[in-house]
């Protein structure tokens, strides 16, 4: 039977080396994440939520267990296919924005899709749409240092959005923003979910948790609570 979940996580364990000992970040985690929902990964610092997000985004290699993305297991995936999935199907939003400082707002948003080989007109159209969605149409020529925190995070969202990904993975996207600005970002992400994009957010911000369709709470690398709205 075909797996209809966005992510299926089975017996997932992960540890980091710290000197001569291994620190367990995830311990035999089993969970299914549905598509087209806003899912939050919560828990205190060191609970493993960022590690899980990194594993889901193929930016941390699997150690033990399995993750399947739309039924395709990561463990048997070639690196080139992993690059393809990161390029086309996954959009990232980081806490520290990670905008490219030498490129303008427009170039930051269009860079990765222009690398996909799309026609220039299509790249331009999509970039304009994405920047319009996040309300930055008037700032396209600005460099990142000329923007406020919220504007930078909006550029990061537009960059994730412009690829029309299957899922957006956001690592504490509101951590560097004030409450009002953070709410602005969450409203934007919720609108994306309404348009059919899956969003998975790692957070311990109660405001963010209030937007969740599904909450996954971790403690010491273990799933302690899972619930739907």
């Amino acid at each position: 039977m075909q797996d209809t979940h966005l992510f299926s996580i089975k017996d997932l364990s992960f540890s980091y080396p710290m000197g001569s000992i291994q620190v367990c970040a995830l311990d035999r985690l089993n969970v299914h994440i549905p598509a087209k929902k806003l899912v939050t990964l919560s828990g205190p610092s060191g609970s493993g939520k960022s590690t899980l997000l990194h594993l889901l985004g193929l930016i941390e290699p699997l150690q033990k267990g399995e993750i399947a993305f739309l039924g395709s297991p990561f463990s048997s995936m070639k690196k080139s296919l992993q690059n393809q999935i990161r390029r086309r199907d996954i959009g990232f939003i980081f806490q520290r924005f990670h905008l490219i400082p030498v490129l303008s707002v427009e170039e930051n948003v269009s860079y990765f899709i222009s690398r996909m080989g799309w026609p220039k007109s299509e790249v331009k159209k999509r970039t304009e749409e994405a920047l319009d969605t996040v309300g930055l149409s008037k700032h396209i020529k600005k460099l990142p240092f000329e923007l406020s925190g919220l504007q930078r995070q909006r550029v990061a969202i537009a960059r994730a959005l412009v690829k029309n990904p299957k899922v957006i993975l956001a690592d504490e996207p509101t951590a560097n923003l004030d409450q009002t600005t953070g709410k602005g970002v969450m409203d934007l992400l919720q609108k994306l979910v309404e348009k059919g994009v899956s969003v998975i957010i790692s957070t311990h911000d109660p405001m963010v948790l209030s937007y969740a369709d599904m909450k996954i709470h971790l403690l010491d690398g273990k799933l302690v609570q899972q619930g739907d709205k």
């Binding site: 690059n83 990161r86 086309r88 990765f112 690398r115």
Partner: peptide, 16 residues
């Protein structure tokens, strides 16, 4: 490094 990590996270290969 962070920026290169971001490039890789968005699908750029080591070769890129």
């Amino acid at each position: 490094k962070e920026e290169i990590g971001n490039l890789r996270a968005n699908g750029e290969s080591v070769f890129d």
